[in-house]
Write a protein that binds this DNA or RNA. Structure first.
Lengths: 123, 123
DNA sequence: TCATGTCCTGGCCACCCGGCCAGTTTCGCC
DNA sequence: GGCGAAACTGGCCGGGTGGCCAGGACATGA
C-alpha cells in the first residue's frame, strides 16, 4: 500500500529553534502531497538543523550530573543510582533536581529526552 | 517577519533516493518563502532520509500506545496525557503498563529510551 | 581570609507512578 | 453468534519522585 499513485510524504520536523520550526511548519502545513509527522510518527524523511547549534554552553553539566544523567537514561531509579555511585538517595535527588533545572525539564523522563535531543547523552 | 520582505528559508535536500528526492523537490519547489539550496550553498536546515528499517515488527504497538508513548517522550505526566487524549488517568496507566511490558522497560523513562533506541519514536 | 561552587547528607511531605484487582463497550474475525 | 483484541474506567496501595527545608566538607580563586 506504500507505492502507487501519490501517497503523502511524511516529513518529521526536527528543528530545535522554535522560530525556525514554526516558520517551516507554517510553510509546509498547506503543501498538498506532503504532511508533517506527528510526534513519534515514523517519517520518510526528516528536516534537521544544518547548524548543530544544539548545545549552548551556558548549560554546563558537572561530571556528577552527567553520571546521574547517564544512569537515568538507563531507566535506573534514584535508589539504583545511589547504589551504583555509592552515594545516598538524597544526593541523587539533589543532582536530579539540578538536572531538571538546567535542562528545563519537568521530570526525569523529560530530562533524558531533552539531553538526548541536545546530544548531551547518546541513547 | 514583520515586513513583507523575504525571510526565505533555504533548505538543503539531502536524499539519496532519487524518486523521493524528486518528489520532494517538486513539492517544495513552488512554496513561497522557501527555497531549495543550490549545491554547496549553506542552508538553514536540511532534509535527510529517515531510515525505514525502524519498526521491528516483533514489538507491535497499537495506535493508542503510540499516542501515549509520544506524549511520554514529551515529558507529559499521566494526568497531562489523559487530558490531552481526552481519556481517564486509569486508561493512560493501562496503556503505559502495556508499553512497559512490550518494550521490556522498568519505568516510563526507560520505555522512552528503549523506544528511541529502537526507532519507534523520534526524539 | 572570605566567597563561591560542587558535592554530599538528612528530614519532611504532597504527589505521581506502577501493579494489582475488578468491570465495561466496541470491533473484526471465524 | 461466539470469541478475542483493543480501548476504556474504577478502586486500592506500596513505593518512587520531586520540592522544600536544613546542614557540612572541600577546593578554587578573589
Amino acid at each position: 500500500m506504500s507505492e502507487g499513485s501519490s501517497p503523502e510524504i511524511v516529513l518529521a520536523l526536527e528543528i530545535d529553534d522554535p522560530a525556525l520550526a514554526e516558520r517551516l511548519a507554517k510553510l509546509l502545513g498547506n503543501v498538498t502531497g506532503l504532511r508533517l509527522a506527528a510526534p513519534g510518527e515514523s517519517a520518510a524523511a526528516a528536516i534537521v538543523a544544518r547548524d548543530p547549534r544544539i548545545m549552548p554552553d551556558d548549560i554546563a553539566l558537572t561530571q556528577r550530573e552527567l553520571d546521574v544523567l547517564a544512569l537515568m537514561a538507563e531507566g535506573a531509579s534514584n535508589k539504583m543510582i545511589a547504589r551504583q555511585l555509592g552515594i545516598s538517595v538524597h544526593t541523587v535527588k539533589f543532582h536530579v533536581g539540578s538536572l531538571l533545572d538546567k535542562l528545563d525539564a519537568t521530570g526525569r523522563t523529560d530530562a533524558v529526552a531533552h539531553a538526548a535531543r541536545r546530544g548531551v547523552i547518546e541513547l
